[in-house]
Every structure is written in structure tokens, then in C-alpha cells.
Write a protein that binds this DNA or RNA. Structure first.
Lengths: 213, 213
DNA sequence: ACCTGAACACCGTTCAAGT
DNA sequence: ACCTGAACACCGTTCAAGT
């Protein structure tokens, strides 16, 4: 008779399993094995696989370290964006976990609170704060999702993207003139620069909104 | 001996099946049944489920109707953003299909070409065109993904989101002051306004980039 | 209260066999 | 060339039974 398993152990091992095998490999049966338990026993601690994923998402958000001593909303939001991305890259397929779960859990709420309070610091209206926070979230999660799924250097087989590059270059130039001419740039994979570009555009756009009121 | 099934029939029925049962319900076996065929027979026409999903993504992109007679890059990009969203909402879980497949297929390339050429019209540098197109894509797909997964009015059980709203309101105000104060706004679900907000911020940000060069 | 064993209703994919 | 039948190696989840 072993000591009963705790919820924290489950989440901890689930995170380790995620890092090992990725989102599609994360299985109740494998998780049970990892804990020295039958898969069925997991249902004594967790209602669903969905609930497990939500707990996982919360745990991932727990690694968020709030950047301190910020000067103004813009620097604060910028730091927050980079830190958000760092967290989503810290665990394999973390963006997929976040994207597939509703926003529940104390540590995830803390992240939302951070984002909302930085925006309030900027003096946005309540509606704008909500809309802007939604946009920031969609942008970061969506970007990292793309980055880790369908982009060069991502999880997808290196080969896959290499072939996409081949395709781009060999496409009929009369049908896809711009795409063909930019094929090289499209395939090149400096994701960090790309994220920086997007973040800057986002910040500039929010600033414009602030000035045009 | 029936007439052999064509690739187009497969994709067409797969799209219908997707609309009926959603991404998680889309199954090789159910698709076979729908075509009056064994699931195993599908592998005579398609290498993988992955390939099927890529074909599906291309078919979805085929419904994209290029907005014509645009005045300038800004109006063009705005129209394109709305049309992109319309296409992603036209079929159940379309955003998930796009997010889970690499960018292959003639109709999907045509969409990319559209986006790139509108940006070129604005006079952006080659690197900026690529970065901006990536951002636009991440934004629209990411937003619709959120919209259809974890947002009020989405696919997720109405109940789930209602409970999230309850949670937001009943959270300890000393730990999540801004979140609690904005709970009402967060739950309210005018996604169209939200998308419009994001699109405008995006456009303003790109315009700022154009002016600061 | 927590775990096991066994079962149910599914998956994607392969492969020999048919026509 | 295209389809079937049967199989393999998996899934999430339920439930009676044990302790």
C-alpha cells in the first residue's frame, strides 16, 4: 500500500511528460505509468483529461515572473510580452495547452491581472483595456503557436519546412509573383526578430489609439 | 463495383463532416462511412490524416473572395482581415484546421499572395512585408481560435463560460483588483467589436512603422 | 479513500487478399 | 487500381471489486 498520489504530483509529472512527448503524446495511460499507477486511478484526483490540461495550463502560467520597476505602460507591456513568450516556450507545446483550455486557475488569473493592470496604467478606457488584453493574448499565443507548429525551426519536422521553402521558390511566378520573390525571406527563420516586430506594431497601435482620443 | 472515389469527393465530404461533428469528431472511420467506404480505403487516395487536413485547409482557403477596388494598402488590408475572419468562421473549427497544418496548397498560397501584395502596395521593405504578413496571420488565426474555443458564444459549452464569469466576479478583490472590477466587460461577448479593435490597432501600428522610416 | 482489472467504445494505420 | 476484412497498437472513461 503506497502513499496516495497528490494532485501536485500528477500535475508535476504531467508537465514532465509533456516535455518528453509533446501534446499529442500526453496520455492518461502514460501519465499513470509514470506515476506507478493505473490510468483509471487518475480519475480519483481529476475529473477529466480536460481538467488535467487546465491544471497544466495554470502550472505553466505559474512560471511567469512579473517584470518589476517598469517606467510607464509601454515598457511594462513590452516586458510582459517577452516574458509571456518566454513562458510559452519554456515547455513543449505550452501554447497548445493554453489555447485548448479556458482561462481558469489562480496563476493564470494572476497573469491576466498583470496584463490588465499594465493597460490600466496607460489610461485606457475600461472597454479598451478588455479589448486590448484580448488582443495581446491572441497575438502572443497565436504567434508562439505558429512559431512552434508551422514555422522553420519549430517542432514540425525540419524536412517539412525545407520542402515548403522548395515549393515557394518553384511556384509559378506569374500566379504568385510576390510570394516567389519573397520565398527566401519567408523561409528564413529569425522568429525572435519577427516577434519583436509584431510586438512593436502592437505597441505603436495602442499608443496611436491613446493619442487619438 | 462502384465508381472509384475521387480526391475531391473526399475533401468535400470531409468538410461536411467537419461542419457536423467538429475537429475532434473528424475521423477517418466516420469519413469512410460517409463515403460508403472502409476507412482503410482512404489510404489509397491520401497518405495521411495530416495530408487530409492540409487538403481541408486549402479547400477552406478556397472560399476566400478577394476584395476588389481597394483604395490604398490600409483599406485593402482591413478588407482582407475581415474576409479572412469570415472564411475562418464559415466552417466549424476552421481556425484549428489552419493552425494544425503547414502552409501548403494552391488556394492557401493565393491567400498569402494577396496579403503579401497588399503589403507591398504600402511600400514596406521586403523584411517588413514578411514580418507583417506573419503577424497578420498569427493575429487573425489566433483571434478566431480564441473566439471559437475559449470565448463567450463559442463552441465551448455556454455553461463553461458562464461559470468563468461567475469566477471572475467572485474572485478575491485584493488579489485580482482589476480583473474583478472588469469581470462584467470580460464576459460580455461582442467579438466583432473586439476583432475590429485589434484590426485597427494592427493597422495603426503598421502605419506608424511606415511613417517612422 | 484510493487503487486494480477488466471492459466499452472508440482511434490511425498496415497489409494480405480479393476484383 | 481500388476496395474489403482483419488485425495491431493504441486512446479516454466507467465501474465493480478489492483494501
Amino acid at each position: 500500500v503506497r502513499a496516495p498520489i497528490s494532485r501536485e504530483q500528477i500535475v508535476h509529472q504531467a508537465l514532465a511528460l509533456l516535455d518528453d512527448v509533446g501534446f499529442d503524446g500526453l496520455t492518461m495511460r502514460k501519465l499513470g505509468e509514470r506515476l506507478g499507477i493505473q490510468a483509471a486511478s487518475l480519475y480519483n484526483h481529476v475529473h477529466d483529461k480536460q481538467e488535467l490540461l487546465a491544471l497544466l495550463a495554470d502550472a505553466i502560467c505559474g512560471e511567469f515572473r512579473v517584470p518589476e520597476s517598469v517606467h510607464g505602460w509601454r515598457a511594462g507591456l513590452e516586458a510582459l510580452g517577452w516574458e509571456y513568450r518566454r513562458v510559452l516556450l519554456a515547455h513543449r507545446d505550452a501554447a497548445r495547452v493554453l489555447a485548448s483550455t479556458p482561462p481558469v486557475g489562480p496563476r493564470r488569473w494572476a497573469l491576466m491581472e498583470q496584463l490588465l493592470s499594465v493597460l490600466r496604467m496607460g489610461g485606457f478606457s475600461d472597454v479598451d483595456i478588455v479589448d486590448a488584453s484580448w488582443m495581446c493574448n491572441s497575438f502572443v499565443v497565436g504567434f508562439v503557436l505558429d512559431e512552434t507548429q508551422g514555422a522553420p525551426g519549430g517542432e514540425q519536422d525540419e524536412q517539412v519546412w525545407a520542402q515548403v521553402g522548395q515549393w515557394f521558390r518553384s511556384l509559378p511566378a506569374e500566379r504568385y509573383p510576390v510570394l516567389v520573390s519573397l520565398a527566401g525571406q519567408m523561409v528564413e527563420g529569425d522568429v525572435k526578430r519577427r516577434f519583436g516586430f509584431g510586438l512593436r506594431v502592437l505597441l505603436d497601435g495602442l499608443e496611436a489609439r491613446l493619442n487619438n482620443r
